[in-house]
Amino acid sequence: MKRKHTYKLILFSAFLAVVGCGNQEKKEVAQAPPPSIPIIQLTTKTVTGFKEYPTNIEGVINSDVRAKTAGYIQKVLVDEGQKVKKGQVLFKLETQALSEDAGAAKARVNVAQVEVDKLVPLVEKNIISSVQLETAKANLAQAKANYSSIAANIGYATIRSQVDGHVGRINFREGALISPNDATPLTTVSDIKQVYAFFSLNETEYLDFLEHAEGKSLEEKLSNYAEVNLILANGSLYSEKGQIQTSSGQINQNTGTVSFRAVFDNPNQLLTNGNSGKIQIPTVYENHIVIPQEATFEQQGNIMVFKLQEGNKITTAMIEVKAAIDHLYVVESGLQKGDKIVMSGVGKLRNDMAITPQEVPFEKAVKPIAKLFRN
């Protein structure tokens, strides 16, 4: 009986010990401090964003070189990419047949001239009618015209450049038969001291442009618009800035777009006909609230942040985004200057959660993230 009583006392003591440990653990958990979370205090900042549009490059002057007469190419006197001057000979056509025709035509001119010279004194002496002389003169004029036409064709057999520039692709070589009716030019000579970059805006973007660009007319808006950048096909930024010169001002019914043309200086002839790339049009957002994109999360299609409230509790707030620039959001509404928000790690937080705020300088928070790897 005594043993049983002792055994019960031991069990009861063990139970009290277990309960005491459990209470101690709960007490320790309850006393754990809230997690440390990085916080930033918002202020305004001026940032520049860019919208990109595919573009095609052409020389300011593109002169198709075509034949004015039919014939076989005898010589190609230039090569692709060569710089040429206005009036420089590019191609020579075979002229042997034309020269023979010219000799025959010249002989007919001489015969007609002899006939006129023979009839003039006879008419003066009233030996023959003047009608015969007029007919002979008409034959002479026709013979001269025929000769001039053949001589012109001989001249056309020497094909010259109409502009200063660079020779493009040569589409016909020695021995090819060409004519003025060919759809493909012999080559194209391009002046690439400056180049045009053609691109298009959709209807919405065009209306935004008209709304925000300074000026009353389209011409004024274009002349006052900011300079644009050109991103080359390899992803590098072209060294020269461009200026938007013209716009069609009309929406293409097939594509729903409005065409624009920018011009770039090309001092080193880096650009040429057929280059492609992207036009970057800048948009400056002055004195706007900007936040890191990592400070946001999505909830039912809305962009949310955690705002710090009194008592170091955080609550969710929905924001409207005006633009996304690199790793930042330009905020349209939902936040004000002076608000404090969670900077990062939002995926592990919940509404009305208590935190230990660790304030991070605003400029450090919005500083671009350095790339560890480059393409």
Rank of each mutant, 00 (worst) to 15 (best):
Q96I: 01
Q96S: 11
A97M: 03
A97T: 10
A97D: 08
A97W: 03
L98M: 14
L98G: 00
S99Q: 13
S99Y: 12
S99A: 13
S99E: 14
E100K: 11
E100M: 14
E100P: 04
E100C: 08
D101N: 15
D101Q: 15
A102R: 06
A102D: 04
A102C: 07
G103L: 11
G103N: 11
A104E: 10
A105D: 10
A105W: 11
K106E: 12
K106Q: 14
K106L: 15
A107S: 15
A107D: 14
A107T: 13
R108T: 05
R108Q: 13
V109E: 13
N110W: 03
N110F: 08
N110Q: 09
V111D: 02
V111R: 04
A112D: 06
A112C: 03
A112N: 07
Q113E: 14
V114Y: 13
V114R: 13
V114F: 14
V114W: 10
E115W: 10
V116L: 05
D117I: 12
D117Q: 14
D117E: 15
K118W: 10
K118V: 15
L119F: 07
L119W: 05
L119T: 04
V120N: 06
P121V: 11
P121I: 11
L122I: 06
L122E: 15
L122T: 09
V123D: 01
E124S: 06
E124R: 06
E124K: 12
K125Q: 04
N126P: 03
I127F: 08
I127L: 05
I128F: 09
I128H: 05
S129V: 04
S129D: 07
S130V: 08
S130Q: 11
V131P: 02
V131Q: 02
V131T: 13
V131A: 12
Q132H: 09
Q132D: 12
L133A: 04
E134W: 02
E134K: 15
T135A: 11
A136K: 06
A136W: 00
A136I: 11
K137M: 07
N139K: 13
L140W: 01
L140I: 06
A141R: 12
A141E: 13
Q142W: 07
A143G: 01
A143R: 00
A143I: 02
A143M: 01
K144L: 09
A145V: 05
A145E: 01
N146G: 08
Y147H: 07
Y147P: 02
Y147S: 07
Y147Q: 05
S148L: 08
S149Y: 07
S149P: 03
I150Y: 09
I150R: 01
A151E: 11
A151R: 06
A151L: 11
A151D: 11
A152I: 04
A152N: 10
A152E: 06
A152S: 08
N153H: 12
I154G: 09
I154K: 08
I154N: 03
G155C: 04
G155P: 02
Y156N: 09
A157Q: 09
T158Q: 05
I159D: 00
I159M: 00
R160C: 00
S161H: 10
Q162F: 00
Q162K: 00
V163G: 03
D164I: 02
D164N: 15
G165A: 02
G168P: 08
G168H: 14
G168N: 12
R169M: 11
I170R: 03
N171S: 12
E174S: 01
E174Q: 01
E174P: 03
G175E: 03
G175A: 04
L177A: 05
L177E: 06
L177Q: 01
L177C: 01
L177W: 12
